[in-house]
Design a binder for these strands. Structure first.
Lengths: 340, 340
DNA sequence: GTGAAAGCGCTAACAG
DNA sequence: CTGTTAGCGCTTTCAC
């Protein structure tokens, strides 16, 4: 069961390990003759270089990492994450780079995970769900690990960023609802310590002129239900609710319906992230497609460039598209198609 | 920027590298005194062991791999995969094990990826979407890499398996439709070279008594649309269609509707994998929840046990639940809740 | 153009 | 109970 190593290949080809290494990498001139012999030997023995040995010697792992502090459960019901990962992988696949996905239970484990990256477990990291003064940013800066921040982040940083204009679609939605006569428009946000949740929430407050109808959710269906219940119990209940994701929107929709409200007649509803089935719901759900795949691709590209020594830079990926559907507009009735 | 190593810790604690190593792992008796000194030094220097050095020395990577030959695009629109990964991660998180996800463009790259695992890039592999006489199985057996097969596989193997009874829910669906007077029940399957697709298709053929209305799809919305178009163009068109996933079912549903059919009156429709939004569609989609998270957890457990030296074994995770909803039964009208 | 040898950071015999 | 010494498989000086 002992694996074949570079030494085996060298022996088979009648050269030294150094020659094999250079014949494969092309990092120094090799005669056509010996290169052919080496290639043949490697082929014959089915040799692949050991990633850990190479990582140890070069400090390069050919992998990038995503460390998640979220409950794994959330991954399953989130429409952003899978599409984002798909976008990342579509870029990584080109260079046979792997994605190291690590879910950690607590802060200590999270920190350990990032420190381990510095030792050639991965060459870079993607940071999602940033918070204000996120502790991970200075840590990774200190460790000197190439990193890309996905989403809004206010503090100065020398890392690459993938940004989107989170405020625009919210303004657009509020305007759309206003135009239809809605005056009490509520917002169920994501956790407000996330920068992106807060950016959207404050765009909402700006556009609607008040935070009286702002409620904080946590992206789960149950929080969508609960915040909706609170809002609908108000003496002057809202006539429209914007949710920070589709899962909460649908939970809210179900709740409202089970309490006798008709959507969108009695209550208009909009989601965020545009799950691929949202266009097919009844009523079709108005939602904002946030271009997760495009953002994943951008993040992977920036990170790979950074790893290869390019200057970090910020890229604004503007792929937010509001899909207006039945849940906010009684008249429109044909389900639209979703876009990436 | 030079990382702190075990040597730094040893120096700081006034002991040797070996002592540090053993103080951390507990693999040999250490006096309380020195252990405390070592721990303090490690803490002070924020030391984490280098995963690649450790992998090189122990042949253990503390990671397991999932290599995907699919188009990344498919990951984004698949409801099984994210939930499965979430299940896997929920088990791995307990032991700070990472998941190495690698998407490969072609067969050669796929083989290289598996061979690289043997060198301590990962300790084991999860195989999805098995085919008959899948070449990956003998390869991994030869490489001696602990592996778990998810889904049906007919050939003998010494690897662990996570199985489910794929036939039962199909039989149940066919019986359900028969009881409602349907006589021409069609099936749009997944690619028939997948063992699980074929298992379901043949259960369908057995239950329905014929393969005249069996069509092969590929899990994409467009194939759902096309196969539906073919079926509905038949002189005697089916009155019910079972699809191998919800994405195809919904595409079929849209197509049928746009051609003037009412669901379920003119055409009953059922999906598979029970996307978390399917219960909220209109009509709510009858679908089979295949317990992806439970299967992910089982796969991770079996694999970890195998890695630690346990005998491989087959576990039947029976978590298929058919959710009968409006798309197959005119009378039932309240959207049910989904379960894991 | 190629070989020899050192070393990446860790673990695991083997001594004491 | 702890120190010494080899490697794990690769890359990379430094010689030739």
């Amino acid at each position: 069961m002992s694996r074949t190593t570079i030494a085996d290949v060298a022996r088979e080809a009648g050269v030294t390990k150094a020659t094999v290494s250079h014949a494969m990498s092309g990092k120094r001139p090799i005669s056509e003759d010996t290169r052919a012999k080496v290639l043949a030997a490697a082929q014959k023995l089915n040799w692949v270089p050991s990633p850990s040995a190479r990582a140890l010697a070069t400090q390069r792992a050919n992998a990038i990492a995503v460390v998640l502090a979220r409950d794994p459960e959330v991954i399953a019901n989130d429409s952003f994450f899978p599409a984002f990962i798909a976008g990342v992988e579509s870029v990584l696949a080109e260079t046979e780079t792997a994605l190291l996905l690590q879910v950690v239970p607590d802060r200590a484990a999270e920190e350990r995970a990032y420190r381990a990256l510095g030792h050639g477990r991965a060459d870079g990291a993607v940071l999602l769900d940033l918070r204000d003064h996120d502790w991970r940013v200075p840590l990774l800066e200190e460790l000197g690990i190439p990193t890309v921040l996905v989403g809004a982040y206010e503090q100065p940083t020398r890392f690459s960023c993938v940004r989107t204009d989170d405020a625009a679609p919210i303004r657009e939605l509020v305007a759309h609802l206003r135009a239809r006569g809605h005056e009490r428009i509520a917002h169920v946000s994501g956790p407000l310590d996330y920068v992106h949740s807060r950016a959207r929430a404050s765009a909402y407050v700006d556009a609607s002129g008040s935070d009286a109808l702002l409620r904080e959710g946590d992206f789960t269906a149950s929080s969508g239900r609960e915040r909706t219940a609170e809002l609908l119990a108000l003496p002057e209940r809202p006539t429209a609710i914007l949710y920070a994701n589709d899962t909460m929107a649908i939970a809210g929709l179900s709740y409202a319906r089970s309490h006798g409200l008709s959507i969108p007649r009695d209550l208009a509803i909009a989601g965020f992230d545009d799950d691929h089935l949202s266009a097919h719901l009844s009523p079709a759900l108005t939602s904002v497609s946030s271009g997760p795949a495009a953002r994943g691709r951008a993040a992977a590209r920036l990170l790979q460039a950074d790893i290869l020594g390019a200057e970090p830079r910020t890229e604004v990926v503007d792929c937010n598209v509001v899909h207006f559907r039945e849940s906010t507009s009684p008249e429109s009735t044909s389900p639209e198609s979703t876009a990436d």
